[in-house]
Design a protein around this nucleic acid. Sequence first.
DNA 1: TTGTACGCGTTATCAA
DNA 2: TTGATAACGCGTACAA
Lengths: 335, 335
Amino acid sequence: MTSIGVRRTLKDVAELAGVSPMTASRALRGIGTVAPELAQRVRAAAAALHYVPDPAARALASAHSRSVIVLVPSLANAVFIDLLEAAQAVLAPAGYQVLIGSTHYSRDEEEELLRTYLAHRPSGMLVTGFERSEAARRLIEDSAVPCVFMMELTDAPGVHCVGLSQEAAGEAVTAHLLATGARRVGYVAAQLDARTLQRAEGYRRALRATGCYDPALELLSPARSSLRLGGELFLEFLERHPDIDALFFCNDDLAQGGLLEALRHGIRIPERVRVAGFNDLDGAGCSVPRLTTVRTPRALIGELAATMALALMRGERVGRTAVDVGFELIVRESA
Amino acid sequence: MTSIGVRRTLKDVAELAGVSPMTASRALRGIGTVAPELAQRVRAAAAALHYVPDPAARALASAHSRSVIVLVPSLANAVFIDLLEAAQAVLAPAGYQVLIGSTHYSRDEEEELLRTYLAHRPSGMLVTGFERSEAARRLIEDSAVPCVFMMELTDAPGVHCVGLSQEAAGEAVTAHLLATGARRVGYVAAQLDARTLQRAEGYRRALRATGCYDPALELLSPARSSLRLGGELFLEFLERHPDIDALFFCNDDLAQGGLLEALRHGIRIPERVRVAGFNDLDGAGCSVPRLTTVRTPRALIGELAATMALALMRGERVGRTAVDVGFELIVRESA
DNA sequence: TTGTACGCGTTATCAA
DNA sequence: TTGATAACGCGTACAA
């Protein structure tokens, strides 16, 4: 029934309800003390006119848009989609629009995104990890917009974060491989973001503790993570280090790529080489053999981070600024 | 160096450049006729002050935000991420911000997203397919915002779309299976969106043409697509129809899940059953055996759709309103 | 509890 | 070619 270009404004709603625009505004926002009867009339009028507040006018008048920036390194990685979906599930019902940004693992792109998005005067922001350019750090700091850091943890006071110790998780995986008898354990990684390197640290710590550490057994590729790359690195590793008895891949994609190449070449897993991944993505339970990995509670991280941001946006002080969601070693068939 | 809360406005820039705000506005937008020397001074002033235009004020004054809505059914599907990334790669350099929305394959959610996003007065919009609620259709229509439909094609005049014939692609896959000797060909699908059903139509057409069509060989599950589900449906299908000699899965995820269960149960592919997927996702070339599938040029669709939207937004009339990007049958080892 | 006046930062419009 | 003025639609601050 609505014809083209009909834009209802607060004034229209107010007139229909027989009140001033200001009262209508208050009623619709559920603010202050508006007589219940009036509020009801305003809501009815708004509904009748299909009134939708103009976010631009709102932002301009109040100096705040009802939006929350969420920055992740990539959309091609299920880990970050889980984060996004969970955050959105919290923020949307609270009336906030989520502005999704992918940095493509680039500091420059993150900086650019921050500059662009901050111009919208968001009410809050969720970003991934702590590794970023100095300029980006300052943009966040100076904007004074409540910010929650996801995935990793820090002790720094006043910094709000929800995540897990990537190093501890990496150590746990390696410890498991050692506990099942492995002695020559390799680490295969790609993308090489901060978390991947933190897992490497955990890997080293576990090996050093048992005197098994050998720097030659680390294969770090800056290339983008993929099944294909995992397969290539797997074969390369076996060729270079035939004495290997376990491989810890920094993520499930690489690990599954390795498992597939193993199948293709008749390399028996875990008999010949134990294989472990990281993240416990959907497919980990379906591979042949099923993948031993670490379950990272991504959805929980997104949910708690969004909830924490919401609290900060309301001006509340949150008690626990660093929330450790932990991780869970999932032992399946591959190691 | 910038201190907290310093917001530069057009007025600041204008003062520094020694011109009126209006001239500064024009100079920065590269509009109308501003003396080259003045324009240069304004740009310098803007740069010096790190001036960033306020998008809210802009949208309010001009009744248009420099944003483009892009709606996809899911972020968990690499197909749509490819679409998004490609569109963004075109729109961002053109100065448009992309508002990403996931409908979760829900008509209601799409309607809700449209209502929310349209309030921002976007300059353009990209949506997926043609299947949506009547209300959503009207929201798009009445908004008068240039809209390009992605993934599917239509002959309807005045409708701008970039995609491929899902039916023709489904037919091509099935024809290939038949050409390699299969006679009892099954179709396994999940999610059951419009495109999945269009592929089913193509499948039927190919089978009818050779007199091999048997409605009992269609297994349609409304559940979400996943590797696990693919494996389950594969085993279920083989048990119900032991005489089957080929299976066409509506997407690569399901197909790969099937391949993995086949491996686990020692069912030889393609000897026992030929298997084909759809989309040619990253992993298709890595599976065991490598997956025969159809390559859909998603990135190209996103790119062309965004380019077309850009043209429409500039008020240009585009010659070809329906762009068929085609598809390519990728024959590997599984069929 | 309700309403009035004003301003948010920008662009459209018109005049010079 | 440039500038003054008036919106855009809403919320803040204050008055009633």
